[in-house]
Design a binder for these strands. Structure first.
Length: 1025
RNA sequence: GCGCCCGUAGCUCAACGGCAGAGCAGCCGGUCGAUAACCGGCCGAUGCAGGUUCGAGUCCUGACGAGCGCACCA
């Protein structure tokens, strides 16, 4: 449907002509006329002028009015009945309206009439509409309608296939749906392929719980089958719940990370990385959960405060050539993880820091000068004996306090002088920086802790003990030998497993890694090229990528995509030839990744080339991929593979936690294998919280009211459109508060919109869009002008993902422009003018234009209600509002000058309302149309603004009559909004017309209709009443 | 600890450096031809202390408060 139908060029020409007339008038001698206009009485009731005179004055003063049809204007001015019924006019009463009864004028008034229900009954009606969309294949219809159009791809971040759809998950899907629907309306082919993240620990743990002791010894194939069934069950549950929110997409063909094609895509990505030399297998400390017995990625770690023993320990220095080591001294370290001491292989000092040999409690210690007093405060007074630079200490040796070995003092830039002693206990197997230092000094990457957290024999006297429970024993041992200088408890934040929430450890093991370092700059450049909404997302992801070490992608679990790792039986070396490994990829594509557990290494490899050591027999690895690598491969498995989609995606839209999660784990593989970011724009939203700002997990607000548990229950309680309107109205970049109160508030907004729609539709009961009126009144053009501005503004805001402001704009238009003003102002025309008169059809034309545009403007958000409205909009149109195109701003011919005039009118209107309110308070009048007002101003600009549309002022201000004066009027009050204009309001002396309820001087002139005004008499005559 | 963002009416949000505005809620009233609707009026706000400027909600500084992120104390 074309939103613009007005003869724009013609309208503009008319405006030009009008302006030309105004310009030419300036030199015209108007003195006499001006004097006559000192007190210009304006319709209705200007009986003291001959028609010809009135006509002259009208054209001389209000050339702009040429927009309104001449015959109608003259009819109005001359107070005479219109010509007998024109053959062009429609039948007296449109179908559905009662024929008039002589004395009952109500039946001759064209009141709003529509079947669009006032009550939404969303919980009941929405599911019916969703069913209809499903059955009619709306999604496919949209695809077909947009075939060949430019693509807009929003790639779905897959929710985890576990549990119900929490309101926060629902919010995410609704935001995506709004984006997709909006871009579809803009004309793009915007497919939406939803996905699910199926692999991973939560499901595996659930299955392990169900299986009990049998789990540990169970056949992996059996476990995986149970996991798959579990995931499949919740995919169905969640799909139903997402659909209940009105989210439209390819629900019958979602992507699943456990499907063979997806799994094959993960290997494609991995093997590409391998070919590019980005994959390595290394012994390196990584986060390790001793409960889940698996490696963890950065993104799987969360921090929480715990109390740890903080100990100050002295390591005896071995005499040597360095400063301080001629004497019997000890170097002092500080640690909060005593259990890492068995793996201590060095002490690190800062090369530029100042260190001192001090005497304290009769012993000699080496530590940072600046920290000596503080660190040894509990030991005794400190006396500095000698000083040295950190760099001079390099190579000193010390005896481990309980392991039989000597270790070196080393240098490290990361040593700080804020805490501890400036001498850092270094265990290359238990810390990232320690590891790097260890590599530099060729230290062993020693990890004496097993997967379950138990020391092996390399921990010496502590072998067989469990970490970190062993801490007190280590402390006791140090104390017993006099190495412990001090012990206290400190509370500090410590990494925890985000699945089981227990403290984790750093532990060096052999793992698969993706090497990030070489590609970091490229990744950061891609970050800069991406649009981040809100903008600070860029800062976050940048700092994240800058600081992220290489990525450990192997996990020691079952429910995932097995890493295609084959180790030489003889030398243990892994096959790193991607060409060989692609056989496995093809197997996954055909059979699913579960095939890994059903075939032997040789069955999968066929005749593989021999290892460098000469042997050709291999054993399989047991690791699976980090699920983050899996979901991060979706650009490969889905966006690049799905026929509807296109790489790179236009938009990813997820919760802000995904900066460290999916955004990052998607960006890196994509940049490393494809050279570009997988998304052009990245939008993030906050979390749903209750009114107290707490995360909504408890589902209770402060009044004890329990919010629903899943998305479908929300729909049943409030209706999806109310939920969607709520989401569209909040600033989703921040935390999003939810409570019953907020839903009640937003439901009020919904009702207001709905009622306005109902009224608009009611005004169009007899309207045929084929017979639109082109001769619009100025107020109509004002309304179109406002609508056009709204369309432009909302489109821009939606493009910027600023739904909240778009919603506010729409609300302001509906409430302020329409409900409080325009719809009131056009009532007279809609209700009382002859059915097919130009004036009435002009109003209907604008109302039609508004409702047609508004249905589309709101369709991305109120997808059910807009559809319902759409079905009531008269005329030929698309089957569904979701197939329709975004409206074009209608040509209103409105100029800056007109805008300025109307601003003045509204200022006066405000002042007037206050004066009228006084009459109302005094019970002098009821409604404002009973008032007659005098407006007085000495200011030419204000006078002109009013005088130029004098004829319409009564209608604009909703009063019976407006009298405009130059100069002063006794009793008039200076306006507050328009100080240059004084206003005076009084009760109109005229009788009230029994039909149109206007107070008119000409009521009672017709013997046939003694209670009617002249205009109504004319209309009644036309109607044959 | 470092960084980012925010602080406007009871609530949700506005205001190129230029008269602090809307909606909701509340109160008062109107209307009875949008009626389980509709309209009007009133009420009421720039958290604090400085600075720049003719002029600051807006720019700068500081502390305060809220939120978020990063890091992690070896």
């Amino acid at each position: 449907m074309d939103g613009s139908f007005f003869p724009h060029p013609a309208a503009r020409m008319a405006t030009e002509a009008a302006r030309a007339m105004v310009r030419s008038m300036k030199s015209f001698p108007l003195k006499g006329l001006r004097q006559q206009r000192q007190s210009t009485r304006i319709a209705p009731g200007a009986q003291d002028r001959s028609p010809a005179r009135a006509e002259f004055e009208f054209f001389a003063r209000f050339p702009v009015f040429s927009f309104r049809r001449l015959d109608e204007r003259l009819t109005c001015l001359r107070r005479r009945p219109p010509p007998s019924r024109s053959p062009l006019l429609a039948p007296a009463f449109p179908a559905g309206y009662n024929s008039p009864h002589p004395m009952d004028y109500k039946t001759t008034v064209l009141l709003p009439k529509t079947d669009f229900p006032m009550r939404a009954e969303l919980p009941k009606r929405e599911p019916e509409m969703q069913k209809k969309w499903d059955e009619s294949g709306l999604y496919s219809k949209i695809r077909a309608a947009r075939k060949g159009a430019r693509k807009y791809v929003l790639h779905d971040g897959p929710p985890y296939a576990n549990g119900n759809v929490h309101i926060g998950t629902g919010l995410n899907k609704i935001l995506k749906d709004i984006v997709v629907k909006f871009h579809t309306m803009l004309g793009a082919d915007a497919p939406y392929v939803p996905g699910w993240d199926c692999h991973g620990l939560p499901i595996e743990n659930k299955v392990a719980e169900e299986m009990g002791a049998a789990f540990r010894s169970a056949d992996p194939t059996l476990v995986r089958a149970k996991c798959e069934a579990y995931a499949a069950k919740f995919i169905d549950v969640q799909r139903k719940q997402f659909k209940s929110l009105g989210v439209l997409g390819d629900w019958e063909r979602p992507y699943l990370t456990m499907s063979p094609s997806y799994e094959a895509g993960v290997l494609d990505c991995f093997l590409d990385l391998m070919e590019r030399g980005k994959i390595s297998r290394k012994l390196r400390p990584i986060h390790w959960c001793v409960r889940d017995e698996t490696a963890l990625a950065e993104a799987e770690v969360e921090y929480a405060d715990i109390a740890s023993p903080a100990i100050t320990v002295a390591f005896d220095l071995v005499p040597g050539p360095h400063p301080f080591s001629k004497e019997k001294a000890a170097i002092v370290i500080w640690t909060t993880t005593p259990w890492t001491l068995p793996a201590n292989l060095a002490v690190a000092v800062h090369p530029q820091a100042d260190y001192a040999l001090v005497e304290c409690a009769g012993r000699k210690f080496v530590l940072a000068e600046a920290l000596a007093e503080k660190a040894l405060a509990k030991v005794g007074p400190v006396k500095v004996l000698a000083k040295a630079r950190g760099s001079e200490l390099e190579g000193m040796e010390y005896e481990h306090p309980f392991m039989k070995r000597r270790s070196p003092v080393v240098l490290a830039e990361y040593v700080t002088l804020t805490d501890g002693t400036g001498c850092v206990h270094t265990a290359p197997g238990h810390g990232h920086e320690d590891y790097q230092t260890g590599r530099r000094y060729n230290l062993e990457i020693l990890n004496p802790v097993g997967p379950n957290g138990v020391y092996d024999e390399r921990a010496g006297m502590f072998a067989g003990k469990r970490v970190p429970a062993v801490d007190p024993e280590v402390v006791a041992q140090l104390k017993g030998t006099g190495h412990l200088l001090h012990e206290e408890k400190v509370s500090h934040s410590y990494p925890h497993c985000w699945r089981c929430h227990r403290p984790i450890i750093f532990r060096a093991t052999e793992q698969w890694f993706i090497e990030i370092d070489d590609s970091r700059d490229k990744a950061l450049e891609q970050v800069r090229r991406t649009r981040w909404v809100p903008a600070w997302g860029e800062t976050r992801i940048t700092s994240m990528i800058q600081s992220r070490p290489d990525w450990c992608v192997s996990r020691q679990r079952l429910w995932g995509v097995p890493i295609p790792a084959f180790f030489c039986e003889k030398c243990g070396k892994a096959i790193t030839d991607a060409k060989v490994l692609r056989r496995v990829r093809d197997l996954y594509a055909r059979e699913g990744a579960g095939i890994w557990y059903r075939l032997s290494a040789s069955e999968m490899l066929g005749t593989a080339p021999a290892c460098a050591c000469g042997h050709a027999a291999y054993r399989k690895g047991n690791d699976i991929f980090d699920v983050w690598f899996e979901s991060g491969s979706s650009h490969r498995s889905v966006v690049m593979a799905h026929p509807d989609l296109q790489f790179p995606a236009d938009c990813y839209l997820e919760g802000t936690d995904q900066h460290r999660g999916w955004f990052q784990t998607s960006l890196l593989p994509s940049v490393l294998t494809q050279g570009v970011s997988p998304f052009k724009a990245c939008v993030t939203h906050g979390f749903v919280v209750d009114d107290e700002g707490e995360k909504l997990s408890k589902s209770k607000d402060n009044k004890g009211y329990t919010l629903p548990k899943n998305a479908e229950d929300f729909q049943k309680l409030f209706g999806a459109d109310v939920i969607r309107l709520w989401i569209a109205s909040v600033d989703f970049t921040d935390d999003i508060p939810v409570s019953k109160k907020r839903f009640d508030e937003i439901a009020e907004v919904y009702k207001k919109w709905r009622n306005t729609f109902r009224y608009l539709l009611g005004a169009l009961a007899d309207f045929d869009p084929a017979r639109r009126e082109t001769a619009l009144w100025e107020i109509d053009r004002w309304a179109l002008h406002r609508l056009g501005a709204l369309i432009v503004r909302v489109e821009q805001l939606m493009n910027d993902f600023d739904f909240a402001h778009a919603t506010h704009e729409i609300n302001a238009f509906i409430v302020t422009d329409l409900s409080a003003f325009y719809l009131d102002a056009v009532k007279d025309r809609l209700y009382t003018f002859a059915p097919a008169s130009s004036g009435r059809r002009a109003a209907q034309t604008v109302v039609f234009e508004i409702v047609s545009a508004l249905a589309r403007l709101t369709a991305p958000v109120l997808c059910h209600t807009a559809e319902e409205v759409w079905s009531f909009v008269p005329g030929k149109k698309e089957d569904s509002v979701h197939l329709a195109r975004w409206p074009q701003p209608p040509a209103s011919g409105f100029t800056k000058e007109l805008e300025a005039d109307w601003d003045r009118l509204f200022s006066v209107s405000h002042d007037l309302a206050r004066e009228i309110e006084k009459l109302r308070a005094a019970k002098t009048i009821g409604k404002s149309t009973e008032a007659v007002v005098d407006l007085a101003t000495e200011d030419a600009a204000w006078h002109d603004a009013l005088a130029r549309r004098a004829e319409d002022l009564a209608g604009i201000f909703l009063v019976s009559e407006v009298r405009l004066h130059r100069g002063q009027v006794p009793g008039a009050v200076k306006g507050a909004d328009a100080p240059l204009v004084s206003v005076l309001a009084a009760k109109s002396p005229h009788p009230k017309c029994g039909r149109c309820w206007n107070l008119r001087a000409d009521v009672g002139r017709s013997p046939r209709h003694p209670s009617c005004c002249a205009r109504c008499v004319a209309v009644l005559a036309e109607l044959g009443a």
